[in-house]
Simulated scan of single mutants.
Amino acid sequence: MSFELADAVLPLPHAVRAELRREWTRLAAAGSWLTGPERVAVAREARAARTFGDGDTGLPVLLGEAAQSVSAAAHLITRDWVADLQARGMAVEQYVEVVGVVSRLAAVDSYVRGVGSTEEPLPEPGSGEPTGRRNEQVRWRSAFVPTDPEDGARFALSSVPAEEEARDQLHSQLYLSTEQMADLAYQDVLSRAQMELLAARVSLLNDCFY
């Protein structure tokens, strides 16, 4: 079974372990715009990009380029670069799904390393076809992709509802739920102020401009 993490030096809450396993199930399955094999290949490419290692040579060029950039050079992504991907044939929903897959992979891998374990092997991809599900309410504003109901990190994945939902589920276990984020006095092992101090420091180190 995945995420046993027998070598971890810190305990894993049951709810966190369960969510990590759900994320691996999601990763292996067909998504909204990518197949299961494509999603796992995107994850493999994203991991390789962090260390300049060999990625997945079978991945279509545009998906590989997007996975590499989102994983290892997100601070260099511009509106023009995203528009160029679309001009070369990548659907905006495909790009959003890549962002969702790669960003959740980064969160999972960082958590696993943080508890003192090694990165979990990627799952075997499943079969099936993408659903093609999209949010018909999104529109272009100031973001690099269309959003609903407005721009901002909270709605960055809103054009592909399954990716937004998956982000929220993982986010609620590794950080805070949407409701908890609204509570500035929230207290867990760390206080809300301590959480935000750590988040700000990590964002700085990762060149996160949000």
Results as ranks from 00 to 15, higher is better:
40 V>P: 04
43 A>C: 06
45 E>H: 05
45 E>S: 06
48 A>P: 00
50 R>H: 14
52 F>K: 12
54 D>Y: 09
56 D>S: 10
57 T>N: 09
58 G>N: 10
61 V>Y: 10
61 V>F: 12
64 G>A: 08
66 A>D: 08
67 A>K: 04
67 A>E: 04
67 A>Q: 03
68 Q>M: 12
70 V>L: 08
71 S>H: 03
72 A>S: 14
73 A>M: 06
74 A>Y: 15
74 A>V: 14
75 H>F: 12
78 T>V: 07
81 W>P: 00
84 D>T: 14
86 Q>E: 15
86 Q>A: 13
88 R>G: 00
88 R>Q: 07
90 M>H: 06
90 M>N: 05
92 V>S: 11
93 E>V: 04
93 E>P: 01
96 V>Q: 06
97 E>T: 02
97 E>R: 02
97 E>K: 04
97 E>D: 05
99 V>P: 00
99 V>I: 08
100 G>Q: 07
100 G>V: 04
100 G>A: 10
102 V>Q: 09
102 V>F: 12
105 L>D: 04
107 A>M: 13
108 V>R: 06
108 V>H: 04
110 S>R: 09
111 Y>S: 08
111 Y>G: 10
112 V>M: 01
112 V>T: 02
112 V>R: 01
113 R>K: 11
113 R>F: 07
115 V>K: 00
120 E>P: 03
120 E>H: 09
121 P>A: 09
122 L>Q: 02
122 L>W: 03
123 P>C: 08
125 P>E: 13
129 E>R: 15
130 P>D: 12
131 T>A: 04
133 R>F: 06
133 R>E: 15
136 E>L: 13
141 R>G: 13
143 A>T: 08
143 A>K: 00
144 F>P: 00
144 F>A: 05
146 P>W: 13
150 E>R: 14
151 D>M: 02
154 R>K: 13
155 F>A: 07
155 F>S: 08
